[in-house]
């Protein structure tokens, strides 16, 4: 494997966004890119990352390999990279280590690190293709604000989507709160728009602690997409350039 990223910031942000949710992960490398799928310890949330080969230049992967990496270790090494450094990942066939180099674009500084790999026996889940009943695309900062504000009151949030819009509601010991958003097109800045596409109304309840965790990815993208259908896990997607993405799935809470 040899994969060169123009900006180390991308990988730094991705790892930062998922390291509190999952710890030891296989980075599955093949000629289409680098993928990661991992569940959190409680088996309630799942991270699915895809960095397409087009996000790297150049990208070469002659044989499929799984790089088992501890994200705490990776974080320590990535801290040594500046955001605008050029980052290159390298691994041999049947590797013991993954090699990372960081090149400063404006000086002759080159740093190089090896991280020991681990054997990770990871459960791989088949995620069915789902036609979601409701898809909401909104500014990622808005979604972060909603989850943060409501998590101060309650452990859970009910998300209801109807043709009127989407409503986030919570009930806690001190009282209750809600935030409603309507479909809205911002003509000056499309990134601030709220798009709602609905085939049937949905109402689901989720644990806020996971949603707050997902929002650590907000720095990766101006927009976030929420996909919901009744009684299936929520999909929260942060799109990256070149069709790469960081997705989170969260199992709902269901009434007794």
């Amino acid at each position: 494997l040899e994969a060169r990223l123009e900006q180390a910031a991308m990988l730094k942000r991705v790892v930062d966004a998922i390291k509190d949710l999952v710890q030891d992960c296989n980075f599955d490398c093949n000629d289409s890119g680098i993928a990661l799928q991992a569940m959190d310890n409680s088996h309630v949330a799942l991270v699915s990352m895809m960095l397409k080969s087009e996000s790297f230049s150049p990208f070469r992967c002659d044989r499929n390999i799984a790089l088992g990496i501890n994200l705490t270790s990776l974080t320590k090494v990535l801290r040594a990279a500046q955001g605008d450094d050029i980052l290159t990942l390298k691994a041999e066939d049947a590797p013991d280590v993954v090699n990372l180099t960081f090149e400063s674009p404006e000086s002759d500084r080159l740093s190089e690190y090896d991280i020991k790999l681990m054997d990770i026996d990871q459960e791989h889940l088949g995620i069915p293709d789902t036609e979601y009943a409701a898809t909401i695309t909104l500014p990622s900062s808005e979604f972060s604000r909603i989850t943060r504000d409501l998590s101060a009151l309650s452990e859970s949030v009910a998300i209801e989507c109807t043709k009127e819009g989407v409503k986030f509601t919570c009930t806690g010991d001190i009282g209750n709160g809600s935030v409603s958003l309507r479909q809205h097109t911002n003509v000056e800045n499309d990134a601030k728009s709220v798009d709602i596409s609905l085939t049937e109304p949905v109402a689901l309840t989720f644990s806020l602690k996971y949603l707050v965790n997902f929002c650590k990815a907000a720095g990766l993208s101006d927009r976030v997409r929420l996909c919901l259908s009744n009684e299936v896990p929520l999909l929260v997607e942060y799109g990256l350039s070149n069709n790469s993405y960081l997705r989170f799935y969260l199992a709902p809470k269901i009434g007794d």
Partner: peptide
Amino acid sequence: TSHQVKLLAFFNDK
């Protein structure tokens, strides 16, 4: 009250 469902109730083990 509601209880938290696990993902394995929805996604298959590959």
